[in-house]
Computed example of a mutant assay.
Amino acid sequence: METSRTHIADVIDPGDALGEVLFGLIMALTFTVGSRLIFTEEGLDVRELIVATIGCNVAWGIIDAVLFVLGTVFYKSRRVRLFRQIKAAKSEQEAISALRKEFPIDDEPLVSTAADEEVLYQAMLGLARRGSPAKLRLSRDDFLAAFIVFLLVSATSLPAVIPFFMIGNADLALRTSNFLLIALLFLTGCAWARFSDAKPLNAGITMTCLGLVLVGIAIALGG
């Protein structure tokens, strides 16, 4: 199990994965909270809510997976373009400027001296000049990462609909569904803290509040 988790973390960045989970939870919560608002006026069509929630998340899971693949192609083609720029540079300074633009460290959480930066870019330039551009192609892991994106967004609809299969009272099931989704927003924030320099409680509360604000905006705009 630990090996599988490690391989998944190697295939897709944890921040990207958690971002997809957050997106899926917000999508599902928008449906359930929106249904709650009209429940007292028109009554709740449980079957329609289940189909709409699952269908929307699956559809966006497919869209996000396709966009992930396109983003990967863009990233790899940009690296090939950078390599060609370095090869075609008329001077060493021009080549290093291209590297600095593509790999800036000024905004990174790293304090370094100008001399150290120069050594770093000189080493990168040496590697780039000795290498040759690889063919632009998608790997098995790229498609696996896209599939994981699809699964993450799609699977977040399940906590929203499971209560309706287990609880006969539609009102109670809807409340339970909303509670589960909000709890998962908090847990997503806590998980985010694991991969960043943040406190789990603060990250969990921030993620929950952010998610609820975005749900409110989506509902207000008719989403």
Rank of each mutant, 00 (worst) to 15 (best):
G24L: 03
M27L: 15
E102D: 02
M1A: 15
E48T: 12
F31L: 15
Q85T: 07
E42K: 14
R36P: 03
S157E: 01
V80R: 06
F164Q: 01
T3I: 08
R100T: 04
E117R: 12
F179W: 09
E108A: 12
D141S: 12
P14G: 11
C190G: 11
E94T: 06
L138T: 01
V66A: 07
L144N: 02
L151K: 00
C190S: 10
P159K: 14
W192D: 09
M1I: 14
E102V: 01
A115T: 11
E118W: 05
R84V: 03
H7P: 09
D13C: 05
M27P: 02
I26C: 02
C209I: 09
I8D: 08
F68Y: 09
L138V: 00
P104L: 02
D116L: 11
G126L: 04
A146P: 04
T3Q: 13
L158D: 05
T3M: 10
V33Y: 15
L174K: 05
E118I: 01
V46Q: 06
V149F: 07
N169W: 11
K135Q: 05
R5Y: 07
L180R: 10
G15Y: 10
T113L: 07
R100N: 10
I50P: 00
D13R: 14
G43V: 08
N57G: 02
R194W: 13
E2K: 07
P14M: 11
A17G: 08
I86L: 01
T32A: 04
Y121E: 00
T30P: 13
F143L: 12
D106S: 11
D106E: 11
D142M: 02
Y121K: 03
A146Q: 01
A145Q: 05
L99Q: 13
L181A: 09
F147I: 09
E108W: 07
F164M: 00
V153D: 01
A89G: 05
